[in-house]
Simulated scan of single mutants.
Amino acid sequence: MLGLYHPGRSVLHRLPAGAKLAGLVLALIALAAVVRTPWQLVPAAAVVTAGFAAARIPLRVAVAQLRPVIWMLAFIAVFQVVFTGWRRAAVVCGVLLLSVALAALVSLTTRVLDMLDALHRVLGPLRRFGVDPDRVGLVLAMTIRCIPLLAGLVGEVTEARKARGLGFSLRALAVPVVIGALRTADAMGEALAARGVDD
């Protein structure tokens, strides 16, 4: 899950957060620009796997980072196969999966505060153009924090549905999750307003 830090003393753990974020951006651009056939995914996957091995990330932790996107990739794969063919589907889904894996690798080897500090330094010169690095960092921190909150909310709704013996229903899942998310957003907004962050 984004924001989950796995402690370690590997080279990747010791790299500055700014360097890792810059490397992530370059790697994502390279993936999108270079990978054009399913076979080109093999060396790219090998590099990503080597990164997890170098960081000494346990297999179960690595798999847990990718599990939430499997359903989304399955939907995309079906759509791509129907409209563009299996080769394009493999490339699109493979690139997306490797991109998520790379982002997870950075997240697992970098503390959130270090990432926010790096972002703050990068955005510092943009103050003269009206960009507030503190606010951008706050938005990013809240986004990272809301991901596990939303995942927990989905889990609670799913468990409640199972406890009532109800079958799967998209509406029965979506409506409580949306309502719970809006209530959480209202509570966070009130908390921010109470602290003077009201614009």
Results as ranks from 00 to 15, higher is better:
94 G>N: 01
138 L>N: 00
165 G>W: 15
44 A>Y: 09
193 A>V: 13
196 G>N: 08
4 L>T: 14
119 L>M: 14
133 P>H: 07
94 G>M: 06
37 T>P: 01
21 L>K: 01
33 A>G: 06
69 V>T: 06
55 A>T: 13
8 G>F: 13
176 P>R: 04
96 L>R: 00
146 C>P: 03
133 P>V: 06
114 D>N: 02
33 A>S: 08
154 V>F: 04
2 L>C: 03
29 I>S: 08
95 V>D: 05
178 V>Q: 03
40 Q>A: 04
50 A>V: 09
182 L>H: 09
172 A>F: 15
36 R>Y: 08
189 G>T: 08
20 K>W: 02
34 V>L: 10
118 A>W: 08
128 R>L: 13
133 P>F: 07
88 R>Q: 12
169 S>W: 13
30 A>W: 13
67 R>C: 06
27 A>N: 11
183 R>D: 14
115 M>V: 11
55 A>N: 04
93 C>I: 12
7 P>S: 02
122 V>E: 01
171 R>T: 15
88 R>K: 10
175 V>L: 10
170 L>S: 09
106 V>H: 03
28 L>G: 03
65 Q>D: 09
84 T>A: 07
165 G>I: 14
185 A>T: 13
162 K>L: 15
56 R>E: 12
121 R>C: 05
107 S>C: 11
110 T>P: 01
2 L>G: 02
131 V>W: 00
181 A>M: 12
193 A>C: 08
14 R>S: 10
9 R>E: 14
80 Q>I: 06
189 G>A: 10
83 F>W: 08
